[in-house]
Design a protein around this nucleic acid. Structure first.
Lengths: 226, 226
DNA sequence: TTAACAAAGATTGTTAACAAAGATTGTCAT
DNA sequence: ATGACAATCTTTGTTAACAATCTTTGTTAA
């Protein structure tokens, strides 16, 4: 039972971005994708049109499809939007959360800390995104869930483009506090912690050095000389 | 200088929905669109894929593309999302609004009241949407602006599906108060009025009688008998 | 008259071939 | 060696034809 090739491609691209296997600016060639998924180019083009409408890829006429490269300004807008949306999600979640949800979230946090110990960045990113998306699902509002899915996707790209100077993102610790507030049904505390968590993430971004890195081979082949 | 046929189609569909010329459930045939816009079906299909990713049309395999028909549950979710987003938009707008913006908004309100007097429903809907979208633009956050564009589009569909029982939606009056609060830079009042405005709109929806109206000819040819 | 069935028509899905534009490579003159 | 130019190659864009599916229409039997 093969799924629709279109959504198959969309999901694959989204997953690859979630784990930072696909960096910002990467090119998505039509032929490459059609061969990779054993489908014709028509389906590839539909998938790319969908991804473009989701603001995940950029379609440059006669050039092809590229993973978007959010600017610093866009990064600010994205995090501001996340604060607005996750705030409402948190308010809904605190009214609906059950014990099994708390159990899931705690397991997620444990898995993320372990992934971090293993220096498994892809797993860490994926688990962190799953944490936020689980809360979104818990809110019961599919519109907000979809919006947040788009924003977390672009947030991952941003984290890859402007990596934090300090290696120690206090990510998991924030999550612990959020789950505690959820379990305590302390809405006020939950809202404050959620907002602060997103501000922490944003504050750690480093917009300085890599303004428009030439994405291609030069940096990948020749490591920066001493 | 012809624009891209794809975005031409997308814009036309979006505008038609904004003015309730295209009702929920309407079918968008590929051949019809390709003839209407003098382009081949490939472009039509890309446009439909974009609209589907924007949640404006639904793609049913081997059936075609249809304007979405939001359920009552989705309507609640959409208005909840609007409250979350327009709240943040309002907070940004109150910090950036200039006198000329107030002038524009007042002119918009005047035009909307006049359109209502003329019983010009399409113009009224379009102007009301423009009011909200102008504030979104004013916020300076393109992400929130795009989200709200999607939500106002679907809100218009919802208003068409579940029309208010009372003919008197207090729409324009709410807008007047919002602009006054904006001009006074009274953030607290502005947030309250914005939230109440959206709750008014939602409260006026009538989910009772037309659960899944057979969209087609029967109702259009045979008016409901006495 | 109604229900089931079959044929015809229309619509969507798939594929391949061709055209157009961009990117790359190689050459030549300065 | 460097820069401009030209030929070649690769990639995207367009079009048309064909296949598969659904919808409608027409017929027949109960």
């Amino acid at each position: 039972m093969d799924a629709q090739p279109e959504s198959q491609i969309v999901d694959a691209v989204l997953n690859a971005i979630s784990e930072q296997r696909l960096p910002a600016g990467a090119k998505l060639g039509e032929q490459a994708l059609s061969e990779l998924f054993n489908c014709n180019r028509a389906n590839v083009r539909r998938a790319l049109a969908s991804l473009a409408a989701k603001q995940v890829v950029e379609l440059r006429p006669n050039r092809g499809a590229f993973v978007v490269t959010p600017s610093a300004q866009e990064a600010r807008e994205i995090f501001q939007a996340r604060r607005a949306i996750e705030r409402t999600i948190a308010r809904q979640a605190v009214a609906r959360v059950r014990d099994e949800d708390v159990a899931y979230l705690r397991a997620n946090i444990a898995a993320e800390t372990e992934a971090r110990a293993r220096r498994d960045k892809p797993a860490e990113l994926r688990l962190s995104q799953q944490f936020h998306m689980y809360l979104a699902r818990l809110s019961g509002n599919r519109v907000l869930e979809r919006f947040l899915a788009e924003l977390t996707m672009r947030s991952t790209l941003i984290l890859g483009m402007y990596p934090s100077a300090k290696h120690a993102c206090s990510n998991c610790d924030d999550h612990v506090g959020i789950v505690d507030a959820l379990m305590a049904r302390d809405e006020e505390l939950l809202l404050r912690l959620t907002d602060e968590h997103l501000r922490h993430l944003e504050a750690e971004l480093n917009f300085d050095l890599p303004p428009v890195s030439s994405v291609s081979l030069k940096d990948q082949l020749l490591g920066s000389p001493a």
